[in-house]
Design a protein around this nucleic acid. Structure first.
Length: 500
RNA sequence: GCGGGUGUAGCUCAGUGGUAGAGCUCCACGUUGCCAACGUGGUUGUCGUGGGUUCAAAUCCCAUCACCCGCUCCA
């Protein structure tokens, strides 16, 4: 059997993740809860490794800029719950709550504010609904009804009383009365701050970590001796009440983001937008993700988020997920948010957020380039990308994870559990565990132990055999090739240091 | 939220009204000693959950939850 693709691969992956302790359904013993997942021992380790790699490459050792000079990026860890006014200013309270209309006939769902209706001016006959910008079908229906366009006026669906929907034909149907009344979909989780649940202390769980960065822009500027162009980076949980959580951890309601807001002068925004688009794509390749499964996709004008309407636009770094291939799905977005967010917060808070450049004596709100990656999605990409099934191997199922990201770096085994071998392997284990995540396993046949390690993506297996008793060397087996080399026990730490 | 599918041991699944099963995994012992080896023995079940019909329900009915696929949505 070759490596499976599509739904078959997802099934294998979900099963492996559960069997070996990467990812479990949240609150499983109570029947689970839609859209939430728990990371098991290996999943937590893998996620932390990816998170640490990002933090290191963004905050501790940021990349070199186009001029070869190190970029300046500082870290932040802001609160999940903020003053609710934050989300009004950011546009999430207004724009995140789209009323939706369902069609009982065509089973389609529309954004209510995207629907308009041709209403008969004389009140005779049905109205014809259509999606904004797609009036053609409705017009041809009018022709079919032997009526004239001039006998109709166009009005937004939302301006009608829902009772009048009974006389409206849906965009994709022939008979009137199939549209439901608009229903509110609140994509932000609500909660209450304090013990009493009243409208006065309503608060929201953040739907993105970015706003915490904008809120602290001035604090960081005043405390950290940074000046544009510079970045503020943050990793943390975000929450969205998705209509349809789907595809394992790809779209869950609680997820983790790795976001960096890059503040720069608007005259340099395009340059930095292009820089970060390429830098971020390259970063994912550097994490071992196969280049041919990654693409950059530029957003169409009409799919841009409210904060990215102006400026250089948005580009997605997309991956060919098992459930999208041969198409792609989002992994990270690089957006030019212009100065939208800082402007909004400056207006709503009445606090000056401008940067003053003492060199040019210019006072301005910086533009923002935002590379925003999904950490949870990254874990899914690492797993899906690393998964391989090769029936010609003694251990067919394996994860070809990049060694530095693998949850376990090495398995340490005595070939047999006699002749003092376990004592030696235990000594090696105790030494290596000080620096690396390693596992000591003395049970069962050596083949089974290799197979178990392959399955969780452990790059190296160190085996103590009888020759070890004579010359203090062990075999080190490579996960991907099965190739074995003998290495002196006191050279194991440098060996791993070089490979990881 | 709509339509279709699935839900039985850790995993993969069989079981169409009458004692809860198989293979793999896992554990123990023995044999072996570099690739899921062999032998013997053993552990593991709210049959997704709740209700109903029945002398009797994994099986029939109703409701519900979760997952998968397709719509829809995705800042």
């Amino acid at each position: 059997m070759p490596r499976p693709t599509g739904p078959a691969l997802m099934e294998k992956l979900v099963a492996l993740c559960k069997r070996r302790g990467f990812i479990f359904p949240a609150s499983e013993i109570y029947g689970g809860i839609n859209g939430f997942w728990d990371y098991g021992p290996l999943g937590a380790q893998l996620k932390n490794n990816l998170r640490d790699a990002w933090w290191r490459d963004m905050v501790e050792v940021p990349p070199l800029g186009p001029d070869g000079e190190p970029l300046q990026i500082v870290g932040l860890d802001s609160s999940i719950i903020q003053n609710p006014k934050v989300w009004e200013a950011s546009g999430h309270v207004g724009g995140f709550n789209d009323p939706m209309v369902d069609c009982r006939e065509s089973k389609r769902r529309y954004r209510a504010d995207h629907l308009h209706v041709f209403l008969p001016s004389d009140g005779e006959g049905p109205g014809f609904a259509f999606v904004e910008g797609e009036a053609d079908t409705a017009l041809s229906k009018i022709k079919k009804a032997k009526r004239d366009r001039d006998q109709y006026r166009v009005t937004p669906l939302l301006s009608l009383d829902p009772a009048a929907y009974a006389g409206v034909i849906g965009p994709d149907t022939k008979e009137p009365g199939s549209l439901t009344e608009p229903r509110q979909f609140n994509l932000m989780f609500q909660t209450y701050v304090g013990a009493t649940a009243t409208q006065d202390n309503l608060a929201y769980l953040r739907p993105e970590t970015a706003q915490g960065i904008f809120l602290n822009f001035k604090n960081v500027l005043d405390s950290s001796r940074v000046a544009p162009p510079f970045g503020i980076a943050q990793i943390g949980k975000a929450f969205r009440n998705e209509v349809t959580p789907r595809n394992f951890i790809f779209r869950s309601r609680e997820f983790e983001q790795m976001e960096m807001e890059w503040f720069c002068h608007s005259s340099e925004a395009v340059k930095w937008f292009e820089f970060w688009s390429q830098a971020r794509l390259q970063w994912w390749k550097d994490q071992g993700v196969q280049a041919e499964r990654l693409i950059l996709r530029t957003h169409e004008r009409d799919e841009l988020a409210h904060y990215a309407k102006k400026g250089a636009g948005t580009v997605d770094i997309e991956y060919a997920y098992p459930f999208t291939e041969p198409g792609h799905g989002e992994l990270e977005g690089v957006a030019h948010r212009s100065c939208y967010d800082l402007t909004q917060h400056q207006e709503h808070s009445n606090k000056k957020l401008e940067f003053f450049d003492p060199q040019t004596r210019e006072r301005y709100l910086p533009d923002v380039i935002e590379p925003a990656a999904g950490l949870s999605r990254g874990v899914l990409v690492l797993l899906a990308d690393a998964y391989d099934l090769d029936e010609s191997r003694p251990s067919p199922e394996l994860l070809r994870l990049k060694p530095s990201l693998a949850p376990v770096k090495a398995g340490i085994f005595p070939l047999t559990k006699k002749d003092g071998l376990p004592e030696i392997s235990d000594r090696i284990f105790r030494e290596l565990r000080e620096r690396y995540v390693v596992q000591h396993d003395i049970k069962q046949s050596i083949g089974k132990r290799y197979a178990r390690m392959d399955e969780i993506g452990t790059p190296f297996c160190i085996t103590v055999d009888h020759q070890t008793l004579e010359d203090q060397t062990v075999t080190v087996r490579d996960r991907d090739t099965g190739y074995q080399q003998r290495i002196a026990t006191d050279k194991l730490t440098p060996f791993l240091a070089e490979k990881l």
